[in-house]
Design a protein around this nucleic acid. Structure first.
Lengths: 150, 150
DNA sequence: TATTGTTATACTCTATAACTATA
DNA sequence: TATAGTTATAGAGTATAACAATA
């Protein structure tokens, strides 16, 4: 049996930081990402890999360039990830039908299966991470967040 | 004159990702951080450095350990940052009054001045980053985010 | 024995410059 | 000339193990 660690309740005054949207948003994001990492370990997917796979699933033939601009990533940082997903036989790079420079990205059958499983896992873990919010609050939160980044 | 780049409106379907709280929170956080980095360059402060200085300002004598547990950082990653802030003559490490192992952190007069200026800058840039939200929406957003990480 | 601060270190994430093939 | 994908590389962020001094 592991003894419970009694945390000394350090009464730190963070009242100013907590008036900042950036601080609150970042702290909440880190909390959710932490739950994500734990639960998504079974699929061996990190947050951005999951986003990439999900976008390919719903947009077969999407190019790296489109992924990058939609996920706010830089092309050099996507190359290795796609290569890794291809080595795991989840993704195929195929010639683009109309642009000889580009490559269309597609999921393999195994990729489709894993991504669909991962999407269910993601939906479930989100519920866990936001279990102190009502359904209405959750909906409001999403709408307000989208007003910031969209 | 620079020609405007006409962005090809890539109609990417991200409807599934946008149902996820983690995705929306992370995207919003990255958007605000980007504004932060631009505006806070004048103070030469990065987000975590700003948080550290603000916490020391409002909690003089706080220890590294307390900073770490409140900001969810690991002690080895704070050492270099504090050393850097000390070299810039913004922070002093002083003996802790009751615990010989610990060091109390304090701001120098220059540190106080810079941090106060930075707090004003932070409050202003937040307004800019969330200018599509009403005051009431902003308040609601903060309350809901805190329900996730607190 | 446990904790604070620290060093060393490794791994991931992010950013920039430059190359190639094609448009 | 501009763009898609790529390589190499540098810098920032984050993680663990281990040590000295103190509790």
């Amino acid at each position: 049996m592991r003894k419970l660690t009694v945390k000394p309740t350090t009464a730190v005054d963070a009242s100013f930081l907590e008036t900042l949207l950036g601080y609150n948003t970042r702290r909440a994001a880190l909390t959710i990402i932490s739950v994500f990492l734990n639960r998504m370990a079974q699929c061996e997917l990190r947050p951005v890999e999951f986003s990439v796979l999900s976008l390919i699933l719903h947009n077969p033939g999407i190019t790296s360039r489109e992924l990058c601009s939609h996920l706010n990533m830089l092309p050099p940082n996507l190359v290795g990830m796609i290569t890794g997903l291809e080595k795991r036989a989840l993704v195929d790079r195929m010639p683009h039908p109309s642009d000889g420079r580009a490559l269309g990205l597609h999921l393999t059958p195994e990729g489709i299966e894993l991504t669909q499983k991962a999407e269910l896992t993601a939906t479930a873990l989100e519920q866990e991470a936001s279990d102190r919010l009502t359904a209405a609050e959750r909906k409001t939160l999403m709408r307000l967040l989208q007003k910031i980044y969209r």
